[in-house]
Design a protein around this nucleic acid. Structure first.
Lengths: 194, 194
DNA sequence: ATTTCTAACTAACATTTGTTAGTAAAAATA
DNA sequence: TATTTTTACTAACAAATGTTAGTTAGAAAT
């Protein structure tokens, strides 16, 4: 009988916090709300976390780290630019489907990070955007993509992917796989030259 | 000498509130924050507005009404489906550029509307989405568009447009007109059949 | 000139907020 | 077994919240 280690309390707190932050916003969620969801008094949570700010910090930077790592991996792959962009879009959608609440928080509530960490976060995000935009620009230079404005293309892609959280329900006619295919078709038929 | 009627206090409050809600969220903005921006004590604002909720209500429904009106107008125009979609996208972007903070609030903070009004708001939005999706579906049926999933197409469009608020600064290399052109190109080259 | 209305103010209210202190039971370690 | 560490609790805190009450100076209306 293999023992399944149940997740430590800290992680449960972070997960429940992410769900609540997604639904009610960072400012709209109280420590008592989170505690209620976890099944504990608000004060007890301070045995596992340092502060409300730190909860937000953990969620945002965990996601931001994943994004950066994905970009670095894709950059090293021996693929065409079109394929690299496809892979990145797939990774975006997969992360959204698997880790929805946390991604939502990283997308919406990062601005409530305390000052020092806020600039760190925006720097990381700009770095990601720069790397992604470079792939698009190189793809244009290589003749794979139409001569669109790379920034507009980048944000159109990021935006389209970001809203998956709002209209995707796992059981609802479309599977995650189909969703990926449809979005990629919609986006890249406009991006790739024919 | 023509007299320029300066806007009534109520409108100033709504405008400043929209800016603050956009930057700090509804929950993150206090009545004292708004009052400070308007140049007045928090309590004084209650001569012009009924409650904090009512501020949010005014902003959200003003924008929602504009969207619905735009849709109704476009539906009546004697245009192809491709052109109708183009017009709708242009109207979206224009509203965003002209009335940015209010649109942001209607996009992000509507969920903090009190219960009764919240369902009214989501109903209105679903109505808009339904009308827009119908245009896409009819365009497909008419052979103007590729046979994409209309829902995916709709949300890709709405999402792409929605993020204009995040990266468009009026003076910044791209004009509003160019922005419109680029986004439409990016989106419709994937939507229109060739 | 007198009254009424408008719009600002100060003071205060009851809640709710994030967080700390102190304590006790339970678990881990010796 | 004895001791230390972990984790939960209750109680309380100071600060911030949306809002009301009461008041007052000036503008508009009579």
């Amino acid at each position: 009988m293999t023992k399944i280690a149940k997740p430590p309390k800290r992680q449960i707190i972070l997960e429940e916090a992410a769900k609540l932050f997604k639904d009610k916003g960072y400012g709209g969620t109280s420590m008592r709300d989170i505690a209620g969801q976890v099944g504990m008094e608000a004060a007890s949570m301070y045995n596992h976390i340092k502060s409300k700010d730190e909860i937000l910090d953990s969620i945002c930077f965990r996601i931001s780290d994943v994004y950066i790592a994905h970009l670095r991996e894709v950059e090293e792959l021996p693929l065409s630019f079109g394929e690299k962009v496809r892979v990145l879009i797939r990774l975006h959608i997969q992360l959204m489907v698997e880790d929805g609440p946390a991604v939502s928080v990283a997308n919406h509530d990062w601005k409530y990070l305390p000052n020092a960490r806020l600039t760190e976060f925006t720097t990381a995000r700009r770095q990601y955007e720069k790397g992604f935009a470079a792939l698009i620009a190189e793809g244009i230079a290589a003749g794979e993509f139409q001569a669109v404005n790379p920034t507009v293309a980048l944000f159109t892609i990021l935006s389209a992917v970001r809203w998956v959280e709002l209209w995707f329900q796992p059981g609802r006619s479309l599977s995650a796989q189909e969703l990926e295919d449809h979005i990629i078709t919609m986006l890249l038929k406009g991006l790739e030259q024919r």
